[in-house]
Design a protein around this nucleic acid. Structure first.
Length: 583
RNA sequence: GGAUCGGUAGUUCAGCUGGUUAGAAUAUCGCCCUGUCACGGCGGAGGUCGCGGGUUCGAGUCCCGUCCGGUCCGCCA
């Protein structure tokens, strides 16, 4: 070993020891006759001291060390004259006897410090330098701990980690597939899995009973701060279970993770139906760290001569506690916020319930004090509160108000990243209609079981929208961290499902015959869940973006700016693969 | 596919309704400094204002196009 200790472990009790350390030069502080060098590795920072009057030659050597040089030093641990309480090794320093430069370094393009001066683009290009920074290193360490605790919990619960193939088959449902050409099978392509869904079901048919995998999944869709083209799931499946068993098992997992990694007890998770989530939060992944629930006002506000409300399918609002002091300017900004093209609201009606008990609304022309009192009653508002109301079509209005609610939550400081509010959202619709494609799509995926009492509705297209799925999402702080369902395990029902989704029997057989055939050989009742592991990590780490929890992430355009991929390939390679490009 | 914000020194940014030699901080280099840990002091170097076109006596600034990046909508079973 080129070291006897790491740069993070020496303490006052080690004083007097002869040690050898290796690491990177963080910074040096040169006083002419006295020079300090901070030596850094993964474990911490240790100060090296050089004194011109003790060893002039060595001190001159130390003065030539630049940032990020890799050096090995030997010396003696000594109690510091001036201690630094900010770092764990701050009580000691190393009186160096010898320095060996293991490698020199160019000046890095950004500072290797907690608060770097580098922009995202540059940090990604030099990701290996970025990872030297403590915040990124800590994020990757957090990910490691979560992965280890996940394996520990699931393994203790008799789950077996099984690897499934990465080169699989493209299917028409769901996200766009990444495809891989097959050289040995000219003109044919593998697809990378969007998830190991069918394989884990086949493992249940195979009698594995409890399966999990921390596994890469791939979706060729446009990206966001919390979406990467390749991402990691904690993928799980279990046999001989009902929904309650799955919810228990996996809120147990998340409880274990919070307990062991963050020392937090999240308690028992409440359940909320999809219908309630839509009605009270306008969102299938409600942020329940704060209330501010939707209040529907159709009965209260209609037929008073205000055309906007009278013509609206839905009039719905929220009550922002203590926000009556919002200025006209702030209210105008909120109006602009909901009128953004992405939200598309036509306007925002507000009513201030002032501290003195008076009510001032933006529609006083249509609603007198008595009418506004009814609003106050509907909202349960108290003096000092601000009522914000949107009107229009149901879906669009709920969506816009949901965004407004989150914005108000942020502005009022109700979205503390150190507070965690977890819940299950259950009873999703099985199917949703797609106007563009003119057909029904599975909201979760085509293998999701409907509620038994809703199965009959599969025979009547007029009732397709009413069918409830035996599906569930785990939501934490407004983030969908996981989702799953009880699966169909009957061939006839699965065939019926494909038929409902517009597949001919032949198409269904060609695409998913392997699964339906398997169901003929004794498939057990089963169900499962998959957690978005990257999102879980970012949530635990209190970050918005998942990128710092991935060692080598891709940018918004799906590019890796460090290795510069994707890239064009050689004509010879293309020819071998029987591929011609058109660009 | 669409909306929106940005691109100026190695880096992060400022640069007003167009007007003399494009600034700051930090990093970097040199000199000084024996207890710093955001060390300090003095001095220096560092710019094709993303790219192309246009308007103008004059463009970092205005217009058009384009490329790159961020955020969002669509999309993501």
């Amino acid at each position: 070993m080129l070291r006897s200790h790491t740069c993070g472990e020496l303490r006052l009790t080690d004083a007097g020891k002869s040690v050898t350390l290796s690491g990177w030069v963080q910074i040096s502080r040169d006083f002419g006759g006295l020079t300090f060098v901070d030596l850094r590795d993964r474990y911490g920072i240790t100060q090296l001291a050089f004194n011109m009057s003790t060893n002039a030659e060595l001190c001159e050597q130390a003065r030539k060390l630049n940032r990020e040089f890799v050096v090995q030093v030997s010396g003696t641990v000594r109690e510091r004259e001036n201690k630094n309480p900010k770092i764990p090794t701050g009580d000691i320093e190393i009186i160096v006897d010898s320095i060996k430069v293991l490698n020199s370094a160019k000046t890095p393009p950004f500072t290797i410090e907690d608060e770097t001066d580098g922009g995202d683009d540059l940090r990604m290009k030099y990701r290996y330098l970025d990872i030297r920074r403590a915040p990124v290193r800590e994020s990757l360490l957090l990910r490691h701990r979560l992965a280890q605790e996940t394996r520990k919990y699931l393994s203790d619960q008799e789950f077996i980690e099984v690897e499934t193939p990465v080169l699989i088959k493209s299917t028409p449902e769901g996200a766009r597939d990444f495809v891989v050409p097959s050289r040995m099978n000219a003109g044919q392509f593998y697809a990378l899995p969007q998830s190991p869904q069918t394989f884990k079901q086949l493992l249940m048919v195979a009698g594995m009973d409890r399966y999990f995998q921390i596994v890469k999944c791939f979706r060729d869709e446009d990206l966001r701060a919390d979406r990467q083209p390749e991402f990691t799931q904690i993928d799980c499946e279990m046999s001989f279970v009902e929904r309650a068993d799955i919810l228990d098992m996996f809120e147990g997992l998340v409880r274990h993770l919070f307990k062991t990694v963050k020392g937090i007890d999240i308690g028992k998770l409440p359940h909320m139906s999809y219908a309630d989530a839509a009605k009270y939060y306008g969102n299938d992944k409600p942020d329940t760290r704060f209330e501010m629930k939707f209040v529907e006002l159709n009965d209260v506000v209609k037929n008073k001569g205000f055309k906007v409300f009278d013509d609206a399918e839905l009039v719905v609002g929220i009550c922002a506690k203590g926000a009556a002091s919002y200025t006209r300017k702030q209210l105008d900004e909120l109006t602009e916020f909901v009128k953004r093209p992405q939200l598309g609201a036509t306007g925002l009606v507000y009513a201030r319930y002032n501290a003195d008990g008076t009510i001032k609304s933006s529609v006083d022309k249509f609603y007198n004090e008595d009418e506004l009192k009814k609003w106050v009653a509907a909202f349960g508002a108290e003096p000092g509160d601000l009522m914000l109301i949107l009107a229009g079509g149901i879906d669009k209005t709920r969506k816009a108000l949901s965004e407004l609610r989150l914005e108000m939550g942020t502005q009022l400081g109700l979205r503390d990243k150190n507070k965690f509010s977890c819940l299950w959202v259950i009873d999703f619709p099985l199917l949703e209609y797609n106007e563009e494609h003119n057909r029904w799509f599975a909201m979760h995926h085509p293998f999701t079981a409907p509620w038994p009492e809703d199965i009959a509705k599969l025979s009547n297209p007029a009732q397709f929208g009413e069918i409830r799925a035996n599906a569930y999402d785990m939501v934490i702080n407004g983030v969908e961290v996981g989702g799953g369902s009880i699966r169909i395990y009957d061939k006839a029902l699965q065939a019926k499902m494909f038929e409902t989704l517009g597949f001919t029997a032949e198409e269904a057989q060609a695409q998913f015959g392997f699964l339906m055939n398997a169901f003929e050989f004794g498939a057990p009742p089963h169900g499962g869940i998959a957690f978005g592991f990257d999102r879980l990590c970012s949530l635990f780490g209190g970050a918005e973006s998942i990128r710092d929890f991935i060692a080598f992430p891709k940018n918004n355009s799906g590019r890796d700016v460090m290795i510069d991929s994707p890239s064009v390939i050689d004509d010879k390679q293309l020819k071998e693969l029987n591929i011609k490009t058109t660009v």
